[in-house]
Design a binder for these strands. Structure first.
Lengths: 225, 225
DNA sequence: GACAAGAGTTCTGTATACATTGATGCGGGA
DNA sequence: TCCCGCATCAATGTATACAGAACTCTTGTC
């Protein structure tokens, strides 16, 4: 694996996991010393982060981690509605029924399990990721999948801001199961409707959950680390 | 302006304008000699092209211009329907009425002019570009705009494949005028419907217009020029 | 004659040195 | 006391050298 790939993925994770806060300056020399590699692969990593929208190149001041505001959350969910609804329709049209029946069954099991004592967040999130991949595969549209990939990066960052309520987790799983069933049945209308319901509830949950701070304070100029 | 920016834009134009054909290998040394700059800014330019999807990094064989197939056209228009319809709705909701009334009037003038003797393609394309920007501004959604920017790059490349029929040009202008009027009136439903009509007709036009070749032949290994 | 193994060559990936540009802080003047 | 301008400096932008890997051509063997 290339050094630039390692640096890119590490920095991306740091930003998504809020270990690197918005406004943080990502100096080339600083990061190259941190990873023990030269500036060249760091430059490529920062370039990719900028293309992803996770960072912005400020002329003369280098690359800084991008801000996330409440307005961004609205904008992200607007784009998500456009992409997810279309993806759900296309997936329902071209899906492998068995695959989505399986996902629906697994999701139902998670719903039942989340109503019990244990809360297996990791298992649920893994299942959602598999369902996203299954939808991407079913849509058979690399351009749509590419747009989704970029969008999910930002959504993951926003999601990490607030701790999802356990009750909401169970309801989200039930909504995902509904989407999977609709796709398995091949009903485009129902798949889109179920997606709309899920997105509306998800946005509601994000907006009503207490978050740390939407607008991060100006970070210290000296590097954290 | 940075050398890497110049190289990126020049290469991007070359790909969109089909001066660089799919499968063409973009060697770092070759391109650096062509632009008279070193490999470093060329690497950054190629990296951006790869992020755009206009080129692909082949392990060991460098960066090559990406292919465009009939399947890609279908996929692009599927994504376009998702993005453009949502953008039209949002623009109708948040638009500046005067701006879109002005665009509608200009488009009507172009329609009348295209029905006459002269065919001012450049003027029409410039007007469409201004309308795209106006919609981007009205949606007030940087993530949606970013997705549109990427998509339009690929669409421009596809569009250059076939010469648009003059009759189709006039009808397309009329459809654009319809969209602008709907947005100016603030009717989300009508804006979306008009967009759907335009996209269906555009796709139809692309698919029925004789094109050079959808699948380009394997390019010569030696660089062209 | 065909296939496989090896050496040569050419490419990418990385490191580092140099140039250039923008930021910062100090001093002078209004 | 505030503002403008210049010098200093630090960080980015670029060039180039080196290392490693992949492809290709050649050669030998079956």
């Amino acid at each position: 694996m290339r050094a630039s790939d390692r640096a890119y993925e590490a920095l991306r994770e740091d930003i998504v996991e809020w270990r690197l806060l918005p406004g943080q300056v990502l100096g080339e020399v600083e990061q190259s010393e941190r990873f023990g590699i030269s500036r060249t692969p760091i430059r490529e990593a920062l370039s990719r982060l900028t293309a992803d929208g996770l960072a912005e190149a400020h002329r003369g001041r280098g690359v800084v981690v991008s801000q996330v505001s409440l307005e961004d959350v609205r904008a992200l969910f607007e784009l998500r509605e456009a992409l997810d609804c279309r993806a759900a329709r296309l997936a329902a049209r071209r899906r492998d029924p068995v695959a989505f029946q399986g996902l629906a069954a697994e999701l139902e099991a998670v719903v039942a399990q989340l109503h019990g004592p244990g809360t297996d967040r990791a298992g649920y999130y893994d299942l959602v990721e598999r369902m996203d991949r299954a939808i991407d595969e079913a849509t058979a549209n690399p351009y749509l999948t590419s747009a989704q990939r970029s969008l999910r990066l930002h959504l993951a960052r926003v999601r990490k801001l607030s701790r999802t309520n356990p009750d909401r987790l169970a309801r989200a799983a039930a909504e995902h199961a509904q989407i999977a069933r609709a796709i398995a049945e091949g009903s485009e209308e129902l798949a889109e409707a179920a997606t709309r319901v899920h997105l509306a509830n998800s946005l509601q949950a994000v907006l009503t959950t207490p978050v740390r701070e939407w607008v991060q304070p100006a970070p210290p100029l000296e590097a954290a680390g």
